[in-house]
Amino acid sequence: MSLFPEDIASAARAIIADYAGKAWMIATAESCTGGLIAGALTDVPGSSAVVDRGFVTYTNEAKMDLIGVQPEVLAQYGAVSRQTALQMAAGALRRSRAHVSVAVTGIAGPGGGSDEKPVGLVHLAARCRDGRLLHREMRYGDLGRDGIRLATVKTALEMLAELG
């Protein structure tokens, strides 16, 4: 029995099996999900062969200190932006042994949104050491905090599967 809904648990199992077969490792860099992506992956038995590390970078300071997001990017584009997500994914690769990284930054609510960046806006990036890169801007809408966070985990796992 998993802590996560079956669609997420099933996706995580498939990723762990696929990546283990390739001897690939994953690093996560998470803001709005607070470690849930790493949690979904490590919920799978045998995940220690695949999950290298996870960075929970909830504050801008953590994004800069732990994974090297540039202060200029945060100042110009904000924490919830394509540019920040891409730098988070790059930093997670640089500071790990992983072959693939996935990064998420968004507004899970219930507050904190604006007209330009509403609750439910999430930027996700996944990067592979071979140079492949994915970015998705998701506008989940106001599904509630839990709904936005779980939807983000599901999208992140889809991106990992796509790069696998």
Rank of each mutant, 00 (worst) to 15 (best):
I107W: 07
A17P: 01
L41F: 01
Y19F: 15
G131L: 11
A27H: 02
T33L: 09
M64E: 12
F4W: 14
G112H: 05
G34Q: 09
E61Y: 04
I8L: 02
M159D: 06
T28M: 06
A14I: 01
K154Q: 15
E30P: 06
I8W: 00
E137C: 14
V73K: 00
D115S: 13
Y140R: 06
P71V: 00
A9K: 02
G164R: 01
G106E: 07
D18K: 12
G131F: 07
E6K: 13
E162F: 03
T105G: 11
Q76D: 13
C128P: 00
V153K: 07
I67R: 05
Q70R: 09
T42D: 00
K154E: 12
V56N: 07
I26L: 01
K63H: 08
P5C: 12
K154L: 11
I15W: 01
Y58S: 09
L41D: 00
G147M: 08
S101R: 07
G111R: 10
I67T: 08
L157R: 01
A11H: 08
V104E: 14
T155N: 13
G120V: 11
A89L: 03
L143V: 06
I26H: 00
E137Q: 15
R53K: 14
H123K: 08
D18V: 01
L133H: 15
G164F: 01
G112I: 05
S10M: 06
A49S: 14
A27V: 03
L150H: 10
D52V: 02
G131E: 13
Y140T: 05
A108K: 11
A11R: 15
L160H: 04
G112R: 06
A98T: 10
D43L: 00
E61S: 10
R139V: 09
A85R: 09
V153E: 08
Y140C: 05
L163N: 02
A89N: 05
G91N: 03
G141W: 11
P5I: 11
V80Q: 04
G91M: 03
G120H: 10
